[in-house]
Design a protein around this nucleic acid. Sequence first.
DNA 1: CAGTGGTCTAGACCACCAG
DNA 2: TGGTGGTCTAGACCACTGC
Lengths: 238, 238
Amino acid sequence: MKKYELIFQDLENKILKKIYDEGEFLPSEMELSDYYEASRATIRQALNILESRGFIQKQKGKGSLVISSEKLNFPISGLTSYKELQESLDFESSTTVLKFEKVKIDDELHILTLLPNDSYAWHILRARKIEGKYSVLDRDYILYDLAPDLTEDIVKDSLYEYLEDELGLIISYANKEITIDFINEDDRKYIDLAKIDHHVVSVKSHVYLADTTPLQYTESRHQVDKFRFTEFARRQKI
Amino acid sequence: MKKYELIFQDLENKILKKIYDEGEFLPSEMELSDYYEASRATIRQALNILESRGFIQKQKGKGSLVISSEKLNFPISGLTSYKELQESLDFESSTTVLKFEKVKIDDELHILTLLPNDSYAWHILRARKIEGKYSVLDRDYILYDLAPDLTEDIVKDSLYEYLEDELGLIISYANKEITIDFINEDDRKYIDLAKIDHHVVSVKSHVYLADTTPLQYTESRHQVDKFRFTEFARRQKI
DNA sequence: CAGTGGTCTAGACCACCAG
DNA sequence: TGGTGGTCTAGACCACTGC
């Protein structure tokens, strides 16, 4: 494990356990440098992660102030998968696989998914039950060549775990979009909607590997009252 | 101006102008280091900003690949203000100030806004017209002591510009939340809603200064079909 | 004034990728 | 094997804070 990651994790733990509590300053970079036997640059690498995650706010001339003792939930922002999300929020849930088929990417699908024309992809449709009600409908297109041995059992469990841990694919970044869409036939069929509902929240993502290969297109359609998106945002000055 | 900022801006410009185009690699860190007469650490600082903004994807052993020639819109993510957003998207819009008053933060408002109990705040309600229709309703609570000379004309124009450029306040970070809420009386009154609409998109933010003083609470309520949120997200491994 | 974080340098070794 | 980005070090000077 890299040194700065270890230092980050140790500091994160100490903040979560309130050894360093909200409103207190962390030890100075020099002191941390002595304590962890690391250069100041390495300490600063760890502190930058803490800052980007909203744990601390650095103040020139003063120090690093702890501003949050909690991990925030990043349902969208961090590219977190449904399973990780569900575990971290820890509510009851289950998944039903509605479709699991191999399709060819024609012109129309190419425009939607950005996967290469004439390639093949897994087309997966899953309904997610949260606290007894079907609230989310996930549609995925995943490049067949990168995961030819995918099975229905795997997608019922966790797709990302399989892709990353089993296949060793390095998922790197995504372009995401959230909009409010009119409900369609599939929403009506597979999500437990109220009569008054006319809309769902749609989260669409194009997901890429570290080598910039497009891996996946996902659309996640949420019942409006089950949708909540929180994030920690920093002001971009430049 | 800092060296790494200048290097970032120069590289960003060259990418926007397609001097370095999508699919091409940037010069290596060593070459950039020679060209800009900067150490590799400084070059890497600039490249990290490019990467975090989604312009490039770094690949160990290969180089920094350009993956986007466009600035993305960050309506929420970057803490961008309505005016900056409106200018960058460049559609027609105007603002009507519906309320502009000084209020005392009582218990109830304290829980909502997180501004200090018994302090005073500006309470501002603004309707935003986009392409001829009132589509967004903004409610703000801003600490009175930090902006005692605020006027209706200023909030009609740009609040953030005034706070940052005129008052020199350094806005640093925010906790944001997006939910789909039932429409209320004010929504009905001030937003041009369709009959079928039962919901609005609500974006709530607690905004803080660099010294961690809470400055502002904002709720922005959008007509559902005018709302769109895009972001570039990187996978968080740790 | 001393102490803090912000920037920058020069140099080193590593893991990874390609030919 | 040579070139790339990733990590790490030791040291320097700066701007800012608070006393």
